[in-house]
């Protein structure tokens, strides 16, 4: 935009680069806990007096994430302007075991996301709690690995935008439903979940017709391709 152009004329290239680097550092800090970053906080805490060239700074930061880190800066909410970082590189099966520090919560999250997906995209909370209970994860008890399970699932995963936990109106006692969150939509591959299900139940993924269509629909984009190494 012309406002950005005019703004860029008033600052040195070094100043823009420095602000860009600070934005990159800020995103990396926020990504430690997987909390999305809002445009408003970015402007207030980092960009500050350079707010008139904010779009240019964000564009350069996205380029650094792509070219240096192999990460993608993604807007998950274009009304509230919220951003997250996702991986742009494919995971490789042959990676050595200690390649990644495994977070056991991802196992828990996987179970929940899988059930929601296989059940059409929305489930009542009881189905999730009952499924987890079969795996010795009880929302009423302190779990050895996860601690306060209810808090992890309905608070932490929701704040991270992995899940949505929504009230079902006119339910007495109050019930909620679970859906995939905006982060899950960008970060999790339905196609790969279906492959996993196929192996687990010794069935062809195509046997779940609706889920198969959903996993390989155009809207799934890059997630559906099983190997797209550049």
């Amino acid at each position: 935009t012309s406002q950005v152009q005019r703004g860029l004329e008033k600052v040195t290239s070094a100043q823009v680069d420095q602000k860009t680097a600070e934005v990159v550092q800020y995103f990396l800090v926020k990504d430690q806990k997987k909390i999305p970053v809002r445009r408003a906080e970015l402007v207030k805490n980092v960009v500050k007096e350079y707010r008139n060239i904010y779009p240019e700074i964000l564009k350069r930061a996205a380029r650094i994430f792509d070219q240096v880190f192999g990460l993608k800066l993604v807007e998950i909410d274009n009304r509230n302007h919220m951003y997250i970082l996702v991986n742009n590189l494919e995971t490789t099966d042959s990676a050595s075991p200690n390649e990644w520090l495994t977070n056991p919560k991802m196992g828990l999250l996987f179970v929940i996301l899988s059930v929601i997906f296989m059940k059409g995209g929305v489930v009542r909370e009881n189905l999730i709690w009952n499924t987890l209970k079969k795996l010795r994860v009880d929302q009423g008890e302190k779990h050895e690995e996860f601690g306060d399970v209810r808090r992890v699932v309905t608070d932490e995963f929701v704040r991270q935008r992995y899940l949505e936990y929504l009230r079902i109106p006119h339910t007495e006692p109050l019930e909620h439903e679970f859906r995939w969150g905006q982060r899950a939509d960008k970060e999790v591959s339905k196609a790969k979940i279906l492959e996993f299900m196929g192996q687990l139940h010794e069935q062809e993924p195509q046997s779940w017709t609706q889920q198969y269509r959903d996993a390989y629909s155009l809207s799934q984009g890059a997630q559906a391709t099983t190997s797209s190494l550049r």
Binding site: D31, L108, F110, E145, S189, K192, F196
Partner: peptide
């Protein structure tokens, strides 16, 4: 205390399903 699953069961599952996620590593 969780019952009959190995202590690191959830770590193992997380490792097994990693391929389904495009999570960014954190610094």
């Amino acid at each position: 205390s969780g019952g009959y699953l190995p202590r690191d069961a959830w770590h193992r599952l997380a490792r097994r399903v990693q391929c389904c996620f495009k999570t960014a590593p954190s610094f």
